[in-house]
């Protein structure tokens, strides 16, 4: 009796665990199904190499390059903000800060990480963009620079806290070895602890950048809805995510190519972020082996 009950419960719990597998299959199947429909009308070559993206008007062009351009320019900008600040914050928290300071700083970082991305969008539009326009009057109301800065701030806590974990995982004995040779705290942290944690730090960078690539609301609000092939951060751009939002805000009926196009774009987004996540995991696994 009890044994039967145990067996049934085990199956129920197994079913819960298998939902994650089904979710992954569901995502891949959904994206694949409509993407295939999309590519029955649009050639892969024009999707990858056409330099215009105008699926919703005539003449329709389906070149994803402007969207990738928009996504990458914001991701690179965000990296320029978040990576240096994040790593320096991580070093400060792991090497210099007193336990008391950490107790205050960590929750602040957690709150920063938990602020909804629409709020970051609002902050970009009403605070950062006006500042940029004061400095560079030619700045567009919707611009990549402002979006980059807020996305950078948004991924900063992730870089800082994951890098801090990696640096703190460097054994105390190795630091002591360096101090015993007459090293200063600066030398111990930058020449021993950080290099030893490098793969963990790298993993955190990749994970944070993949987050930036998938970020949606802040970039939709701050960078605009205009797909452009440009490197000028003061102009508006459209990211892959912002395009998906744009289509779903309108009334694009199922079965049309406009509807299918969001699946194709989402597929590119999914492949990019999944690839980066896997890379980050592999790097982290390698670094765990280093001390065992």
């Amino acid at each position: 009796m009890g044994r039967l009950k145990d067996a049934v419960i085990e199956k129920i719990l197994l079913a819960c665990a298998l939902i994650s597998i089904l979710t992954m299959i569901g995502i891949v199947a959904t994206l694949l199904f409509e993407t295939i429909n999309f590519f029955s009308e649009v050639s892969i070559a024009s999707f990858l190499f056409d330099t215009k993206w105008t699926p919703l008007f005539k003449p329709a062009h389906y070149g994803i390059l402007p969207l990738i351009n928009g996504t990458l320019i914001i991701t690179i900008g965000a990296a320029a903000v978040a990576l240096p600040l994040g790593i320096l914050t991580a070093i400060f928290l792991s090497e210099y800060a007193s336990p008391k300071f950490r107790q205050v700083a960590k929750p602040v970082l957690e709150i920063l990480a938990g602020v909804p991305t629409v709020v970051y969008g609002y902050f970009a539009l009403t605070f950062i963009t006006p500042l940029l326009r004061k400095a560079y009057p030619e700045t567009n109301i919707f611009n990549a620079a402002s979006a980059s800065i807020v996305v950078g701030i948004l991924i900063l806590p992730m870089v800082a806290s994951l890098s801090e974990d990696a640096i703190r995982a460097v054994p105390r004995s190795i630091r002591e070895g360096a101090y015993a040779l007459g090293a200063t705290p600066f030398e111990v942290s930058t020449k021993v602890a950080v290099p030893a944690a490098l793969s963990g730090i790298l993993a955190s960078f990749i994970l944070a950048l993949s987050r930036a690539i998938g970020e949606t609301m802040a970039v939709t609000i701050a960078a605009g809805m205009m797909p452009r092939l440009t490197l000028n951060p003061l102009e508006g751009v459209q990211t892959m995510t912002a395009y998906i939002v744009q289509v779903s805000l309108g009334d694009t009926p199922r079965g049309t190519i406009g509807y299918q196009s969001i699946f194709a774009v989402a597929m590119v987004l999914f492949i990019m972020t999944l690839g980066m996540n896997i890379a980050s995991q592999l790097i982290r696994q390698k670094y765990r082996e280093a001390y065992v």
Partner: peptide
């Protein structure tokens, strides 16, 4: 300065996760 003059070897070997050369050259370099 003191620790440059007074070296130390610890209970458990604690080489830096660097090359053999770098381990020895690290002190003189800094």
């Amino acid at each position: 300065l003191l620790r440059k003059q007074v070296g130390m070897v610890f209970q458990k070997p604690n080489p830096f996760p660097k090359t053999i050369f770098e381990n020895v050259a690290w002190g003189p370099k800094i």
